Simulated scan of single mutants.
Amino acid sequence: MNGSHRNDERPRGRVVVGVSGSLGSLAALHRAVAEARRTGAEVIPVLAWEPPGGELGYRRSPCPPLLAAVRDTAEQRLRDALDAAFAGADPGVPMHPLVVRGETGPALVQTADRPGDLLVVGRSGGPLRRRLRRSVTDYCTRKAGCSVLAVARPELQQDLETLHRRIHWHLPVGPAPELVRAKG
């Protein structure tokens, strides 16, 4: 097989990945790209958005200029997330970013609508956050008609959340006392 023939082939599958710009979604995006490289698939990064106040609120008080501004902001957020993930470099796989109006879980499941698709999602925050908001990961694993890969939260995200909690509760944030004693 020569190189030019390979470039003319269509990707064998799709890897759909939820992207919000969070560290967890960027980890999921990197994993999606790795899976696409491994299988020769294309990557479809999806950012879902809703009007302020949700769909019901928008139906009660429609404002097309506001809706257009929110959609433009969502498109910019997706571009910014892709730039942050790859620092402007080519990820090396075909990529077709998509901005979808709707709740995140349903938008991802509707986009990953082919049996051969792989849906990649990042794990959301800790137990408290999952109690306050519906888990996108849980929704996708229950409702998707394709394989779903849930990517663990990056260690850096866990460290930042720990630091945030310590600051919030006015606890010391420096190195652990046993580390300070060991150096001295």
Rank of each mutant, 00 (worst) to 15 (best):
72 D>R: 14
162 T>S: 00
71 R>E: 15
167 I>L: 10
3 G>P: 05
2 N>T: 05
165 R>D: 12
165 R>C: 02
29 L>C: 07
24 G>M: 04
19 V>K: 07
124 S>N: 02
169 W>D: 12
99 V>P: 00
56 L>D: 08
114 R>D: 04
36 A>W: 07
49 W>L: 12
163 L>G: 00
50 E>F: 08
178 E>R: 15
72 D>S: 07
2 N>K: 06
175 P>I: 11
102 G>D: 04
161 E>D: 07
175 P>Q: 11
147 S>Q: 12
51 P>Q: 04
33 V>A: 08
89 A>W: 07
169 W>E: 15
144 A>I: 11
38 R>F: 15
127 P>C: 05
64 P>L: 14
95 M>A: 06
129 R>Q: 14
166 R>M: 06
46 V>H: 12
157 Q>T: 02
158 Q>V: 15
166 R>T: 05
111 T>H: 04
96 H>E: 13
34 A>S: 10
86 F>Q: 06
48 A>T: 06
163 L>W: 08
67 L>W: 09
164 H>I: 08
8 D>Y: 08
142 R>Q: 15
129 R>L: 14
97 P>C: 11
180 V>F: 00
55 E>M: 14
50 E>I: 03
139 Y>P: 04
35 E>Q: 13
174 G>V: 10
124 S>M: 01
126 G>M: 02
102 G>L: 13
158 Q>M: 06
32 A>W: 01
22 S>G: 03
169 W>Y: 13
160 L>T: 00
82 L>Y: 11
174 G>A: 14
42 E>P: 03
71 R>T: 09
8 D>Q: 13
119 L>A: 05
78 L>S: 04
50 E>K: 15
154 P>D: 00
158 Q>F: 05
122 G>I: 06
94 P>M: 11
57 G>V: 10
